[in-house]
Amino acid sequence: MDFSALAPDQFENMTFDLLQAAGLRNLVWRTPGADGGRDIEGTFTSIDFSKYYQHQKWYVECKRYSNSIDWPTVWNKIAYADSRGADFLLLVTNSNPSPSCENEILAWNSNNRSPLVRVWRGYELEGVLKNYPHVAAKYGLLGKTTDAELSLQTLMFEATKLAQASYVSHELGVANTSAMEAGAALAELVSARYSQIRTYGRIIIPVNVTTAPNYEWLSWSGSLAGWDDIGIRALLTMVRHLTGSKSIKADSTGKHLTLLLTDARFVIAGTGDRTFGELATWADVEIEEVSKNLVKISRRG
């Protein structure tokens, strides 16, 4: 994977998508950093042997470096992460710490200093991305390969399940418009992204929304500028399907979109949460907040 082919902001956005796919939640940008880059904060919840929930705060420094990383650079990041009350500092880079920096990081962690330092080095980052091929494919790191095309499998399977659910409901004489609409929108997104990968080796996000999606259960206020027509339809219909809400009120303000859900029966969790996260990656949006009656997302650009 040629990370040097990515522009600095693309590398940062790729890191955000990778962290989101890997399970870090409540992700927020902290900008600008002292070096002009964008840094990320997030939380990770784990369960120990006694079934006690531990909430960890992570500060993430993501940057393409042309040379190896020295200890003063890492030390400055540690100081800032500590000022933010972080439990862990994660360095995500295409490069590697210098040998002396590796020794200092080892000494720091051995003394249980806070925050503990973790590193996704260039060669490790490629391995991490292989676990989330949809992120690698999105940024053209897999090129026009079969692996890139197969990275859409999760959404393909979901579209198939929605088609089956719609057919069964029809046979039983029960209306299931949420599954039908979500399946159609998801199939359209998969088709578009598949075609882009085969043609360009990466995805292209067209900005072509001129009117709000025409769903009787949707009310939209605010600007439509900047949103991708195909992506927003897939997101809206999947939110309604996963939550079982009767209607959605969408309020767009700048890059942010707030969805208020009426009579939602479910919270997006478990398998649905993973599917929604992958959908967000392909739609090129960031998930800001998810609760039973509220979903907040923001678009790139």
Rank of each mutant, 00 (worst) to 15 (best):
V168W: 03
P206A: 15
H134S: 12
E12A: 03
F3P: 07
I204T: 13
E61M: 00
E286D: 13
F157R: 15
H55D: 06
V92T: 09
G244Y: 08
T43D: 10
G23D: 10
G270E: 12
G270Y: 12
A234H: 03
A250K: 02
A269D: 12
L186V: 03
W75P: 01
H134D: 13
A179M: 00
E286F: 07
I105K: 00
M14S: 02
H170R: 11
L242H: 08
S83G: 11
D263T: 09
W217S: 08
P32Q: 05
T211M: 06
W29M: 00
A250C: 11
T258I: 09
A283E: 04
S166K: 02
G122L: 00
G173P: 06
T43M: 09
S219Y: 06
G85K: 10
A159V: 02
T93M: 11
D273Y: 12
C101S: 15
E288G: 13
T211V: 15
N293E: 10
L152R: 05
W227C: 10
A280F: 04
E104Y: 00
Y65T: 14
T43L: 12
E181N: 04
W227D: 08
I203S: 08
F3I: 05
N13T: 06
L155M: 14
T253Q: 10
G23P: 06
I105L: 08
K57Q: 08
P99S: 13
R64I: 15
P72M: 10
V92M: 15
M238Y: 01
R25Y: 01
I297Y: 06
M1A: 08
K77W: 08
G127T: 09
L141M: 04
V174N: 06
F16D: 03
S223E: 14
G277A: 14
V209H: 08
A250Q: 02
I47P: 00
F49A: 13
A7N: 03
Y80G: 00
A148Y: 04
S195Q: 13
T237M: 05
G272Q: 11
G277C: 14
Y80T: 04
N103S: 12
A81S: 13
R30M: 04
I197E: 03
V295D: 06
K51H: 12
I204N: 07
R299N: 12
D284Y: 09
G122M: 00
N208F: 06
Q20L: 11
S221D: 14
T258C: 00
S169T: 01
H55T: 15
E126G: 09
A185S: 15
L236H: 08
P97Y: 09
T160S: 15
C62Y: 03
G122V: 09
F88H: 14
D263L: 05
N67P: 03
S291P: 02
G42Q: 10
K51N: 15
D251C: 04
P97F: 08
S178V: 02
T271I: 14
L242P: 01
L27D: 02
A107K: 07
G143N: 02
D228T: 02
T154P: 05
K63E: 07
F3G: 04
R300Q: 14
T262D: 10
A136W: 04
L142Y: 03
A79Y: 08
I40F: 03
G231M: 08
K144D: 01
E216F: 12
I232S: 10
R121Y: 04
Q164I: 10
D9Q: 12
N208P: 11
F266D: 11
L155A: 09
K63M: 09
R300Y: 15
R198H: 02
P206T: 11
I268M: 07
